[in-house]
Design a protein around this nucleic acid. Structure first.
Lengths: 249, 249
DNA sequence: CCGCTCAATTAACGTGTGTTAATCGCACCG
DNA sequence: CGGTGCGATTAACACACGTTAATTGAGCGG
């Protein structure tokens, strides 16, 4: 690590938890990953961490804050394809895809840790099981992509919005960053609209509906879920696709 | 291989081409993969190759025909999340995700080759570069998922339909299974509707529009693209996300 | 050759969501 | 303390797409 008061191990806690939810991570593997970490970098909300067309030589892991993957189309319309939380790699796939086919932006102020690709190659040469775990992380991204696809195709805007709230809470809770059916969600309605695939005008209508149905309370950047069963039912949310099961991979 | 007149190597040709479009595949690696192949299995159109909730102990690679990944929601609505062609693994991700979070069905009659998971583990233990290539294949699936997501959120139904036609042609062409702006596409309008995320009534309207604009000719299971530039422009299609570039991975 | 079934097609009507544009509230700052 | 700007909100109107239901056409088995 080049700088920072916190040790790499500390910064990687959410990441380790994320993995340990799915498999056992050996002490040696843990050290190997920590040793592969390089610099720490901070970004302000709205900044781009990587841009479409870039060929990054390192991958970035979020340690604090929210980021998103997105693409622009048409006349400046934006569509998010993923939201990333602490412990998530935002572009581990660039390690093998090489060229970015989308951009990554900061939804809030955030900080990340970088992993040079040549060090990741070394990991794949020496640690087959750890390699499979990194692979797994990109597969989890894919599973979430599929879930979003199903929502986009077959759920209404209110359902998709509710679904995103459920998903975000469940993922934060899993790594110990949320509890009590509330979490910090300091993003803009416009960003939420871009995630759900609707207009800013309509996300506003949708949010009012969800509020009126007492499905969510969202104020001052805090999202609260008055009744998890009610929200999950409305969203047809089932966390199977998050694969929150510890087993040998 | 347990049975079949064709050798594994023959059956794996589209698969080898798919990989070789992105990197060099060594002779030893080629042999290792061929050796990991197990049985050949045939399916009829409409059959399920794997179902949501299953825990497959082998992954399947399509050798002929079209398959799809899908999930059911609500009152029997179906949403496809991927279409797979010869050379594609339909569930390589199950190797690490373990439990299927969606089903895989045959869009047409098709045949596949299976790869027992324990043999894939051995591959990851002995062939780091080949492992990265398999990982890459799942990353390509992810890239296509993101492209679909952008389309679902920000493109019109005619655009998404045109986009799927472009994508399918480009992928088939890449592995040598299509040329001359035509390809075999013997699927039902209902299946296409499930891929694009619209109703069967509306896919019919969309197809008529695309036909009237001379963007596609689709008759007797043959899809023809009168003008590739015109269709690509209408669909905002750019094949960057397919990563058709040979380079060290 | 009839009747069955399934895919494709058409029509009528309802609605979820987009678009445009204006207003409001609030933080920030000179 | 009054501007400035951004995010949230509201209104009016348009239309892409869904729903329901009926019709047509092609393949296929009896």
């Amino acid at each position: 690590m080049a700088d920072g008061s916190a040790s790499v191990e500390e910064l990687l806690q959410p990441f380790f938890r994320k993995i340990q939810l799915r498999d056992v991570l050996g002490a040696e593997e843990q050290r190997a990953i920590a040793a592969a970490a390089d610099q720490r970098v901070d970004f302000a909300a709205g900044d781009d961490l990587v841009s479409e067309g870039d060929r990054p030589r390192r991958s970035m892991l979020v340690t604090t804050g929210f980021t998103c993957r997105y693409r622009m189309v048409n006349a400046g319309e934006r569509q998010l394809t993923a939201v990333h939380l602490p412990g998530d790699f935002v572009d581990l796939h660039s390690f093998l895809l090489k060229e970015m086919d989308h951009s990554v932006g900061a939804l809030t102020q955030c900080s990340i840790v970088t992993f040079p690709h040549e060090r990741l190659v070394k990991v794949t040469e020496r640690f087959p099981h750890l390699t499979r775990l990194l692979w797994l992380l990109t597969l989890l991204d894919g599973a979430i992509h599929r879930e979003w696809l199903v929502g986009m195709g077959r759920l209404s805007a209110p359902q998709r919005t509710a679904h995103l709230v459920c998903e975000t809470y469940r993922r934060l809770e899993a790594i110990g960053l949320a509890s009590g059916n509330r979490f910090n969600f300091p993003i803009t309605q416009a960003a939420l609209a871009d995630a759900v695939g609707i207009s800013t005008v309509h996300i506003n209508r949708v949010l009012q509906e969800l509020r009126q149905l007492q499905l969510i309370v969202w104020d001052g950047g805090i999202m609260e879920i008055p009744s998890w069963p009610a929200l999950a039912k409305a969203a047809e949310f089932d966390d199977r696709y998050l694969h929150l099961v510890q087993e040998p991979r």
